[in-house]
Design a binder for these strands. Structure first.
Length: 474
DNA sequence: TTTTGAGTTGTTCGA
DNA sequence: GTCGAACAACTCAAA
């Protein structure tokens, strides 16, 4: 019986420990570990450029961990699996469940088609602490507000599964499976842009666990406060690891939980709760990446202004903290959480551009681009989402900079042309006296842009647009 | 069915 | 400089 080949299909679970489907497969027979790059099924949600770069390195590490026996395929997953199953008389296929709507549809279909051929599919939960269909209100409908979702839904449900060890005996299948080499999946960009990402990240399962340990030692102690300051090292930076499943949320949850019971720990656990909430929203609202959760926003008068969008994307808005964030994104594939809110608020409220434009740019540039988190968060900042920020809550990027980057370390790092400006003026060069600008070597409109939109007026414009919305029928 | 209390992350203004 | 209130009502969750 041990001689039979079973397939473990790696997807968003690029790790060997705490991998429930892989552990189950290992008990069943010789495991053929595969990865399929299925852009055909993903269509408009196919993986963005920065994430592809991450994926390449993550797969490389995983393959190494599996003694080079991970097999790569490209194309329609149903066809790949069907062919493999026939060619090698595979009777059992294992995978950990995914929750993006296009994957749910695809996987369901694969399951049915393969069942018709007598092939057994076994799926496990390797990506979420709780299944989205289990966390329902007493009337059996999904939550729309975070706090009750987390308190009544998550915390009063069964505790998350404790992490599994690596499978004790993992026999890997050998043979010619007509796969393509990793290099030929076309994951790496050809422009050299990715070179700036490299120094900021350690990729793969081992690195992910190291990151968790480093956060436990250095970040957690002052997490609740420190997480707001982009120059501090209090955020976990685990998001890309969690997205690709190099680390499971269970491993994070239990490691953090073991660290004690203070408010920093509670706060971090609730952030994992937000991840669950985003997945629940996406699972129960498959249109979340495209459609306003609050239908009244469907008539919102977003502006169309490609030049303004380009300036935001390039970090050339003339608003220092915004430009710092957008350049951090471009250079590192990541933005600190608070700065994500600042740049998001600026795009949606000050520039009055569609949140979907922001979402698309983030999707391409973030190494942690995640359909659930990205969609839910953009809808939140735009005010059209679940439990969203009230419309009058518009971030003032000057105040935010002064408050959360008061020494200017973060902003000066990413906007070096302003590095000599005194703290007092760093976040508002447009109000800086000419003499100070001159001493600091700043020439507005020449080596740093003029502010592209008046903050006060654009704030009022946004408030008016939101007010008008309420009066609109429907 | 009705009622009640509550709701991630802010800003501005005036005392 | 600091502090509290106003901002605007609405939807959600649960009793």
């Amino acid at each position: 019986m041990k001689e039979q080949i079973v397939i473990h299909w790696f997807r968003q679970d690029l790790r060997v420990s705490d991998n429930p489907a892989l552990s189950a497969a290992a008990q069943q027979g010789r495991v053929l570990p595969i990865y399929i790059l299925d852009d055909e099924s993903a269509q408009e949600h196919s993986i963005g450029a920065a994430s592809r770069w991450w994926l390449y390195h993550s797969l490389k590490k995983l393959n190494h961990h599996l003694q080079g026996k991970l097999r790569f395929f490209r194309g329609n997953a149903e066809q790949v699996l069907t062919k493999l199953a026939i060619d090698f008389q595979v009777r059992n296929i294992y995978w950990n469940r995914c929750y993006e709507p296009w994957r749910v549809v695809r996987d369901q279909r694969i399951e049915e088609r393969l069942a018709d051929r007598g092939i057994r599919i076994e799926t496990h939960n390797g990506s979420l602490l709780w299944e989205p269909w289990q966390l329902l209100k007493s009337d059996q409908t999904p939550y729309k507000v975070f706090t009750p979702f987390y308190r009544k839904g998550c915390l009063s449900a069964e505790a998350p599964r404790t992490p599994l060890p690596e499978p004790e005996t993992l026999q890997l299948a050998q043979g010619n499976f007509s796969e393509v080499p990793l290099q030929e999946l076309g994951l790496l960009p050809t422009t050299g842009w990715e070179k700036s990402l490299l120094p900021h990240w350690q990729i793969g399962e081992t690195a992910a666990y190291d990151r968790l340990l480093a956060f436990l030692q250095k970040g957690l102690e002052d997490y609740k406060e420190g997480r707001n300051f982009p120059a501090k090292a209090n955020v976990s930076r685990m998001s890309p690891h969690l997205h690709f499943g190099e680390l499971s949320p269970n491993q994070a949850w239990h490691a953090i939980n073991r660290a004690g019971d203070d408010s920093n720990i509670e706060h971090f656990l609730s952030e994992l709760g937000w991840r669950e909430f985003s997945y629940s929203l996406l699972y129960h609202n498959p249109e979340l990446p495209k459609t306003n959760l609050q239908a009244k926003f469907d008539s919102f008068p977003w502006r169309s202004d490609p030049d303004a969008l380009a300036r935001w994307q390039q970090g050339q808005t003339g608003c220092p903290i915004v430009d710092a964030g957008m350049r951090e994104l471009w250079q590192t594939g990541y933005i600190h959480n608070r700065v994500r809110m600042i740049v998001g608020s600026f795009l949606v409220k000050n520039l009055l551009l569609d949140w979907r434009d922001g979402l698309a740019w983030f999707w391409d540039c973030l190494v942690d681009a995640d359909l659930a988190n990205n969609s839910a968060s953009w809808q939140w900042i735009a005010g059209c989402g679940a439990d969203a920020a009230p419309f009058f809550r518009i971030f003032n990027p000057v105040t935010q900079g002064q408050k959360f980057d008061s020494q200017g370390e973060y902003t000066r790092h990413y906007v070096p042309e302003l590095s000599k400006l005194p703290d007092k003026y760093l976040f508002c060069p447009w109000t800086t006296p000419k003499s100070v600008l001159q001493e600091s070597g700043v020439m507005l409109g020449e080596n740093y842009p003029e502010l592209m939109v008046d903050l006060k007026l654009s704030r009022e414009r946004a408030l008016d647009a939101f007010k008008a919305l309420k009066k609109a029928p429907g």
